[in-house]
Design a binder for these strands. Structure first.
Lengths: 218, 218
DNA sequence: GTCAATAATGCTGTATACAAGAATAGATTT
DNA sequence: AAATCTATTCTTGTATACAGCATTATTGAC
């Protein structure tokens, strides 16, 4: 059983928030949620605190827990930081990466390409993630690796929609290749620039998505 | 009263860990701590989870909470990330900083210099912190500002000891000046390089401190 | 004498009961 | 009629009681 109770509940709640069951600003009633998950308030409160830690809910003392989806501005900020942090990973990895990791990157990239050819966005998504996680690890800094992974995870639900944009996967592949080249030639600045651009463009794509969404709803 | 109970306890516990009352690997008994703070286990557990979030304790399910001081390797990693993240702040701030913020930086720097002249390391420490926090804010990215501030806070107890190193404050002042120049001329790369070097050197100073400590104890 | 197995103790994780504060609704006053 | 104050109710924060798992110690067997 362990403490997994709170952990499992936190994950389920996360899903419910992403699914839109609870939307921004909603108050999360402890009692009702406790009934829903068939647990007492104690583990549920711990789950809420876990979510507060990752920024998904805001805990206001004596008032309750409120769903706090990051707004467009904050999302852009997070994408900007993601781009910079990945650039850092790239710069460090360029001089620290192992040969076997380079081989793994090639492998992930080839599978990405195969996914593009098959129009299989699910596989592409998975291999793309593997590609990036290899770079995090090869930064040779496990603290950086963990923190970058956390931010990556937080942005996951927002990055996913972009794959549907026409031509995005092909463009992304080209960027991957230049990243790989920079890493292979051991050029820190080139790797940093390539990765920064690669991730930053996701933020911009996301931005235009938001704008179009607004236009559509107006 | 609010939920501040857990927050206050978390801070006190943090102090106790930094003071050495609890050292690395110590198990934190919930019942004894609850008695010590005159509260029940419930708010104390919340405090422990808060500390787990900042990485000071490790929560092992069904085993308890253990003090987890970062080891030398992890500390070096954290300093490296700190240097890179501050460099990012600098690069963004170089093109976004306001005139009034530049004036504030000058002011903080002058007060730093005055503190060096007076051999007042306490004041130096405070103004130095202000100097850096202004740059975080002027990155124009409040998410980055918050995250950088968090890491800064986490490294606080380890950075403090370095000020005692002979000549460190003077050297630091020179670095501050070059940072300020880069920001004033709006040169992103120069600002990034200056800040990275300024912070990275703290990690190296810390490293040599550790080595000396080891030599002394051997 | 040593190792293993079982029992007992002590801790964490969970539930429930209680207290205090916040929000809302109703009544009274201006 | 509107606004304010008060009282009631609902919710959060805290304490305590209970259950389950881990650790340790003791006993028995090899």
């Amino acid at each position: 059983m362990e403490q997994r109770r709170a952990d499992a509940i936190a994950e389920e709640l996360e899903e419910l928030i992403f699914d839109g069951t609870f939307s921004d600003g909603d108050r999360l009633d402890e009692v009702r949620l406790a009934e829903r998950f068939r647990v007492s308030r104690t583990p549920l409160r711990e789950a809420l605190q876990r979510l507060a830690r990752s920024g998904l809910v805001e805990l206001i003392p004596r008032r309750g827990a409120f769903v706090r989806q990051p707004g467009p501005v904050e999302l852009m900020e997070m994408f900007e930081v993601m781009a910079e942090v990945e650039a850092v990973c790239g710069r460090l990895a360029a001089v620290r990466i192992s040969d076997s990791a380079l081989a793994d990157l090639h492998d992930a990239n080839q599978k990405c390409q195969a996914a593009v050819d098959c129009q299989n966005s699910e596989t592409y998504y998975i291999e793309n993630e593997r590609f990036h996680k290899i770079i995090y690890k090869q930064s040779g800094n496990s603290f950086l690796e963990t923190e970058t992974g956390n931010l990556h995870r937080r942005l996951k639900p927002f990055r996913r929609q972009q794959l549907r944009l026409r031509g995005r996967m092909a463009q992304s592949m080209a960027e991957h290749r230049s990243i790989l080249e920079a890493l292979e030639s051991g050029d820190p600045e080139a790797a940093a620039v390539a990765l920064r651009g690669h991730v930053a463009i996701q933020g911009e794509k996301f931005h235009s998505l938001m704008v179009n969404l607004k236009k559509a709803s107006a």
